[in-house]
Design a protein around this nucleic acid. Structure first.
Lengths: 164, 164
DNA sequence: GGCAGTTCGATGACATGTCAACAATCTGGG
DNA sequence: CCCAGATTGTTGACATGTCATCGAACTGCC
């Protein structure tokens, strides 16, 4: 760890560009989303995943896993969305501990109203700025990194921390 | 806005991959960073930008602009970092309103201790997983998007909102 | 059946980020 | 000079995310 290989000029350019794009794209997409639909990005993601599920329903655990959110975070966020009438919680038939999250009609309306504008913003600010080859490369590269990261430790599960 | 062009299969793959990579990479880098050095990612970014500046000093305004943070956020964060002894605030000679943020010796030690491990993690989980062509493509594409986003409205400065 | 160990989701305390408002200061036109 | 308007950084209120913990329920082994 004492003499790491520093990033060369190209690598540094890619890494800095990635971080900067990330930040600016976030700001722009969040701005567009709240302005046009009153939803935050997390709101949108929750509604989006729900709307892609059969009957707009998902078990909290499964939704959390799919979104890569902690159950705690999702539970807090759902409480807020529930108060706004976007989702409801239902009992889980096969597991009394469980909780089923379901889109309300208002929630479905909200995501359907927000999606076209959001999609357009994604196109305008990212996808349409890329060549087909770049889209292809971005897909390939991100999926490779995702596989790498997902593979190494799906859930850090330290059992009996061996003595230091 | 009623009939947007939906993302085709390749575009969707790129967009989903990007978001998933983003999340997983964040989690992993943050995990590595706090575990090995006790710094958060925001801490690291602040210290990193400061350490790249002459004498490890920057005006708060300039640091905020460089990081794409709001002044409020930076001010809050600096207060916390100051309490941990990583940075100090100094008066600004040429502008009495201004505030100069400076690395403390402890801050410089912290970033120098954290950098090699962080850099290694960036390599292991991203850069070294990419072909040279992909690194090149990522650099090109991200910078294009950044230029696009930075160009359209450097600072949203709505003055007299013209009637809708 | 019963118990140990695990999973599930909720919760409270706390860390962090956003937003609006503010005082102090700077700036330029008159 | 003077003052209206802009900029700077801080602050408090609040929204959001994290972490540790909890009670309830499930699971498999005896």
């Amino acid at each position: 760890m004492d003499a790491p290989r520093w990033l060369d000029e190209r690598e540094d350019r890619a890494w800095r560009g990635y971080r900067r794009m990330r930040r600016l794209l976030d700001l722009e997409l969040a701005r567009q989303l709240t302005q046009d639909s009153g939803l935050s990005e997390p709101d949108y993601d929750v509604l989006s995943d729900l709307s892609e599920s059969p009957e707009g329903r998902l078990r909290l655990r499964d939704l959390a896993d799919r979104m890569l959110w902690s159950r705690s975070r999702l539970s807090h966020h759902l409480t807020r969305m529930q108060q706004r009438g976007l989702v409801t919680r239902q009992e889980c038939p096969d597991d009394a501990r469980g909780s089923i999250v379901a889109l309300t009609p208002a929630g479905r309306e909200a995501i359907e109203a927000a999606a076209p504008g959001h999609l357009t913003a994604v196109r305008r600010n990212l996808i349409d700025l890329l060549t087909p080859a770049e889209v292809e490369a971005l897909g390939a590269l991100t999926h490779r990194v995702v596989d790498h990261l997902a593979g190494q430790q799906p859930r850090p599960r330290p059992r009996h921390e061996p003595a230091a």
